[in-house]
Design a protein around this nucleic acid. Structure first.
Lengths: 143, 143
DNA sequence: GGCCCAATTGAAACTTAATCTCAATTTCAG
DNA sequence: CTGAAATTGAGATTAAGTTTCAATTGGGCC
């Protein structure tokens, strides 16, 4: 699982397996869905493990490089991440009022992108689609 | 044109039409394509008009609110904007090898997104689709 | 196990984009 | 033209994220 993959990644780079790095990894994969670095840091803290903000950020970057975690957006108040290992690809809708993130997937959308790539002789390897607007709740509230 | 639209927007809000705001507007619409706030500020400066960074940022936000300008991404080094008025909406393909940016538009893609939004009771106001991969030239070269 | 050294850590300083403060200035309705 | 309200600029402030560097630690090697 992700633990082994991360260990292999570290080994391949001559990096060390520290308790701080393990704590970050464990915490990230225990979070269901999106998270911000600060929340990650606080979660780790409140779980009794001591790790500095610097280490949390450093490990986060390593995890992104390893492909286990992906940065999915930059909000007003910083980056948002999610772990990708064990997660099917999906896109996001983001409510600009409350910040809620809705995940969705559309086979149709994927297919059309392939068609477009072919038309432009482009070899697509990945994509990010972010739809911004208002979620049901915020839309109602505004009335 | 954009000038009139912006003036109407300001008037509707009881805001004033200042030379600084006009300078920002003029500069933005003279830039073909994407720009960053800092570049905008420097351009205005070097064109002889004096306007502070604060005013540039403040006006930029007003323009986004008015719908004349759109923030298209948040890069490592700040936000990237483009003016939308007089520009048809489009998405981007980015070659990860050479950095080339291909703009494209697909009515199909737009429609499917509307369908998805409806399904999730989400009121989409804008979106960003970025397809990463290799352009024709780089693909050929790699062989 | 124990040695050794490169990698890692934490605390605090730093960086950078963007926002805020507030006194002085400017706009514009009347 | 006048005055109230909005705006401006310079510099202070904020906050996310990175860097610095001395002290600590992991892990290959014997």
């Amino acid at each position: 699982m992700e633990r082994t993959l991360f260990m292999n990644f570290l080994a391949a780079r001559g990096l060390k397996l520290t308790k701080e790095r393990m704590a970050v990894l464990r915490q990230i994969f225990s979070i269901h869905g999106h998270f911000e670095p600060e929340r990650l840091y606080l979660n780790i803290r409140s779980s009794g493990i001591k790790a500095s903000r610097a280490s949390v950020y450093r490990t986060l970057n390593l995890l992104v490089e390893s492909g286990l975690v992906e940065r999915i957006s930059r909000s007003e108040k910083g980056n948002v991440y999610e772990h990708t290992y064990g997660h099917r690809h999906h896109d996001h809708m983001i409510c600009t009022t409350c910040g809620e993130v809705i995940e969705f997937f559309s086979e149709n959308l994927e297919e059309i992108q392939n068609v477009i790539c072919t038309r432009y002789h482009f070899t697509g390897t990945s994509h990010t689609l972010e739809i911004r607007g208002q979620c049901r709740t915020c839309k109602k509230r505004k009335k």
